[in-house]
Design a protein around this nucleic acid. Sequence first.
DNA 1: ATGAAAGCGCTAACAG
DNA 2: CTGTTAGCGCTTTCAT
Lengths: 340, 340
Amino acid sequence: MEKNLNMREVARQANVSVATVSRALRSPDKVAAPTVARVQAAAESLGYVYNATAGDILKGRSTVIGLLVPAVGNALFGETLHGIQDVALAAGYSVIQGTTRYNETSEAMLVDSMLQRRVHALILTGMTYNMEARIQRLASEAGLRVVVVWEKPVKGKSISYVGFDNRDAARRMTEHLVDLGHHRIGLIAGPYSRVGRARCRLEGYRDALQGAGIPFDPDLVIERHPDLLDGREAMEALMALPERPSAVFATSDLLAIGALKAARSLGLSVPGDVSVSGFDDLDVVAYMNPPLTTMRVDAYRIGQLAAQVAIEPAGNPARHYCLDSDLVLRGSVGPCPKGT
Amino acid sequence: MEKNLNMREVARQANVSVATVSRALRSPDKVAAPTVARVQAAAESLGYVYNATAGDILKGRSTVIGLLVPAVGNALFGETLHGIQDVALAAGYSVIQGTTRYNETSEAMLVDSMLQRRVHALILTGMTYNMEARIQRLASEAGLRVVVVWEKPVKGKSISYVGFDNRDAARRMTEHLVDLGHHRIGLIAGPYSRVGRARCRLEGYRDALQGAGIPFDPDLVIERHPDLLDGREAMEALMALPERPSAVFATSDLLAIGALKAARSLGLSVPGDVSVSGFDDLDVVAYMNPPLTTMRVDAYRIGQLAAQVAIEPAGNPARHYCLDSDLVLRGSVGPCPKGT
DNA sequence: ATGAAAGCGCTAACAG
DNA sequence: CTGTTAGCGCTTTCAT
């Protein structure tokens, strides 16, 4: 009989008005204890389930958060999602999720559908494609909270950020390779022409080279979508260079896994012939052969903070969190082989 | 200016009634073309965004689907999610997602929050824990569509299934190992005491042994949650057995990746000393060293079908799809070494 | 402490 | 073809 009944039926059963049912169920402190008990008993016996949608519409603001990610399998997925979900659920929020697959049309459709649901907030993994202007406008004018995660905070915007310094992290990884004697260092970069995070990592790489007095060689940089096959192909291209790099920094673990595979196929030992490092510290990279040296951030924490920021009232100011990142040393990086 | 205005304001701007706005925007064929144009222009100029929530509440049925998965990183994630999303989005549905992490409390909370949103359908990855009775009841009485994916259809229920024959697939994988001469075959199984899918795979393993006249040895079976560390530990336990198996079938790729790592740590070559096979065909397993022999299903298709079934009207009958699965031969499985 | 009434943004009869 | 009216399930004044 759990046929989606409403408060009116509970009210009838408990011999009170709908208003009292609403109060008893949602703010019990405003109702006499025995009444609360009676209402709860009635609701229980009827199998009543609160209709969050109806509540939302009346209050004008919803308790739904929209989450947009470029791809599943990315670092965001996993721990960040868990962090978001844990905080959201505890606060009575639901998360509606969408994957853009680096596709403008998908992204636009997803954003539209989320706005149609009147999401209270949008959590994004970076400002991508052509949405930036629109999102900005929504954040400043329509009272929509927008939280960008995995990017370094940009001050002075109406948008919140929960991330870390991608540029600095990439610089530190590159310096680590330089310190081991590498001076020809390949970079398999993410889509830096469109994704800020990827661009920052490229810049961090350049910072490190510059700091070490190594000239920047554009031939050593390949721009790819962060996935396995792209990493493999990029690595093959890098290894086919006349003077091939002795180390390759892939700015995403997926790319690095692909690169490892390419090295293996080419009969190159890692790190004997060529070092490979990644970025994100996906769970699986510790299980690779060799295990991957990578850059780790507290993805769960990013998720928690993002959700906290997201569920704040619309009028609240934007928040800016910048977390630390840690270099995780594993077996895929070694000293530069002699004579290179 | 995009301050969440409503149809009334569009109506005023276009000099029509709200009802006409509603019709012009949602079913333009019922309105005169010039009026439609005028309304659309008004909506456009005001930056009006349709409020799907308000529409849902009135119609009594929502255009939201709830998706419950045990863990991100699982095979379901990735392609199945994409399949669901593509179909849902095209039909104007949103997906609210929740990860249970094999935790009863999380699962119960997530289901509650989805019911509070009056989701039109629930897509589940198996009937887990104590929810089964409740879900059954909701499906049959409350007009909620329930779709279980990745499980073999069970006839005669009010619940839809989109899956494949896990038992048969596991049997075929085990037979493949038997055919290569293995007769002591370890099984790293999923949580079969609670998850039907995992139980079926265990049964398929037993079917194959029985078919080959190999006695079942419970010491060779280890039950674990499908994740990397569990796979590693289980493999270590299996390899420490007095008479260790010459092949290990891990019923999830994550477990298999862990097993590969364990073998490497123990100095065992795969497949020289021990063969390892997985299940799911996660993208990454083709990139392992050695690449993993595994069982693949069309996860994207499962997602598409699941969403199609989910968005059917509540009164429609349950659907049952059983897809094929394919053995994917890669390098992690070889013939049984002599003398074992 | 509780009830009556108004109304959130939209849709679905029913008239005209 | 378009406007009027009623109302979805809930919350929130405002009385009592």
